[in-house]
Simulated scan of single mutants.
Amino acid sequence: MSSLRKTALVTGAGQSIGRGIAIRLAKEGADIVLVDSDATLLRATAEEITKVGRRVSVFLSDLTTQAQFFEAVDHAEKTFGRLDIMVNNPGFEKQCLNADISYDDVARLINHSVQSTHWGIQAAADKFRQRCQKGTIINVSSSAGHENPTLIDIHTASKMAVRVLTQAASKDLAPAGVVVTLQCFGSIIPTARYVS
């Protein structure tokens, strides 16, 4: 989908993958709403987008509740008059490779990857339906969601769940003209410049 004259909302936009996606969409012509919990990192990303001549707005949130996703989407519409592209980029937590991982750690990882992606799809799709418009939802996951040699790995399970969730949403939303896609990345090693 061309990002020319579009508005894109990117979660986890303060650093790493989210930052790169936001800047790339801006270079392709989109105005950007940046969402993250770190104001300093968001400011740096916003400055890069301003340099390429696109409008940018910051929505500071940790996106730990369903309501926050709907608020972020409403912010995009109020700021730029529309939302066309939703990038669900929950970020990647450290891989958990053993069977002794605690219940709380499992719950946090699943919520972090799967639940936040689900809420992002909901919020964007709801806005697209309200406006009777087509749109694009891009879910960011990991190559771990396709293949991982580790037999016990909750990280892999969470990424596979995001893949299946994307497939289901793609089929469900296609009749409304909403494209739902998945972008999977391998290991990302941030440079010192982007580490807080």
Results as ranks from 00 to 15, higher is better:
Val164Thr: 13
Arg55Val: 01
Ile152Gly: 06
Cys132Glu: 07
Asp104Glu: 12
Gln183Ile: 03
Gln133Trp: 11
Leu97Gln: 12
Pro149Met: 05
Gly81Met: 08
Gln133Pro: 05
Gln122Ile: 02
Ser141Val: 00
Gln130Tyr: 01
Leu165Ile: 12
Arg54Lys: 15
Glu48Met: 15
Asn88Pro: 03
Ser102Ala: 12
Gly186Arg: 14
Leu42Cys: 09
Ile23Val: 15
Ile85Cys: 13
Gly135Pro: 04
Gly12Ala: 05
Gln130Lys: 09
Leu34Arg: 09
Val10Tyr: 08
His146Trp: 08
Val106Leu: 13
Ala174Gly: 02
Asn88Ile: 00
Gln183Tyr: 07
Arg82Lys: 14
Asp38Trp: 07
Ala44Tyr: 11
Phe92Thr: 02
Pro175Val: 03
Gln66Ile: 00
Ala26Cys: 05
Leu63Trp: 05
Met1Asn: 15
Ile21Met: 11
Thr65Gln: 08
Arg55Gln: 13
Val73Ser: 06
Ser16Val: 13
Ala39His: 06
Asn98Thr: 15
Asn88Val: 00
Asp36Gln: 07
Asn148Asp: 09
Ala174Ser: 07
Thr136Asp: 10
Ala169Thr: 03
Met160Trp: 12
Val178Ile: 14
Lys171Ile: 13
Asp104His: 13
Ile101Trp: 09
Val162Glu: 15
Tyr194Pro: 01
Phe70Asp: 02
Ala22Leu: 04
Gly12Pro: 02
Val114Ile: 13
Val179Asp: 07
Phe80Val: 03
Met160Gln: 14
Met1Val: 13
Arg129Trp: 05
Gly20Leu: 03
Asp38Thr: 08
Ile121Lys: 12
Ile49Glu: 01
Val195Arg: 09
Val106Gly: 04
Cys132Ser: 10
Val52Trp: 10
Glu77Ala: 06
Ala161Tyr: 12
Ile110Asn: 12
Gly186Glu: 14
Lys127Gly: 00
Ser61Tyr: 00
Leu25Asp: 00
Ile17Leu: 08
Ser3Leu: 05
Arg108His: 14
Asn139His: 15
Ile23Cys: 07
Phe80Trp: 12
Val56Ser: 13
Leu151Tyr: 15
Glu47Gln: 10
Leu42Met: 15
Ala67Arg: 11
Val10Trp: 04
Gln122Lys: 14
Leu41Cys: 06
Gly12Lys: 07
Pro90Thr: 02
